[in-house]
């Protein structure tokens, strides 16, 4: 499991090259593509991360893109990549930081990266989560 901000870092690409070289088919990486990192939107901090799927394909990985909040899609993707026997696999999961929770969504800078909610914000977020639980 890796992050998109984390993919700015060199060790991710070193490992990606090595895994492809050794045809590490027993390695499945899941990228939590939530679009925000500590200092701002990933697109602004490191624009060259895009096109993200093409990069891992070019590195010799099997790539699958999914909605990272859809449990059915996540299971399907994991089943699919398990069939790949000649290369490592990258599942690029598009996600949101604090999906449906207004205290996080209100922050346009970095979706409160590394910042716990205040007591007041916590009550709002928990009420919103409870509403989702009741609907589920």
């Amino acid at each position: 499991m890796i992050g998109d901000g984390e993919a700015d870092q060199g060790q991710i690409w070193e490992a990606s090259m090595a895994a492809a070289k050794y045809k590490s088919s027993n390695l499945t990486a899941i990228l939590d593509y939530n679009k925000y990192q500590q200092t701002g939107p990933v697109d602004e901090v490191m624009p060259a991360l895009k096109p993200i799927a093409e990069k891992w394909r070019a590195f010799g990985w099997h790539v699958r893109e999914i909605d990272g909040h859809n449990v059915s899609e996540i299971l399907e993707a994991l089943d699919e990549v398990r069939q790949v026997k000649d290369r490592p696999q990258m599942i690029i999961a598009s996600t949101l930081k604090g999906k449906g929770l207004s205290p996080f969504e209100a922050d346009d800078v970095n979706r409160k990266h590394g910042e716990p909610l205040t007591e007041e914000e916590k009550q709002i977020a928990l009420a919103e989560l409870d509403e989702m639980l009741q609907r589920s």
Binding site: D32, N34, T95, K97, L101, F104, P116, L117
Partner: peptide
């Protein structure tokens, strides 16, 4: 802690 980065990955 990092609640928003944890929440984005929680379904996975």
């Amino acid at each position: 802690g990092h609640p928003s980065s944890s929440l984005s990955a929680i379904d996975i």
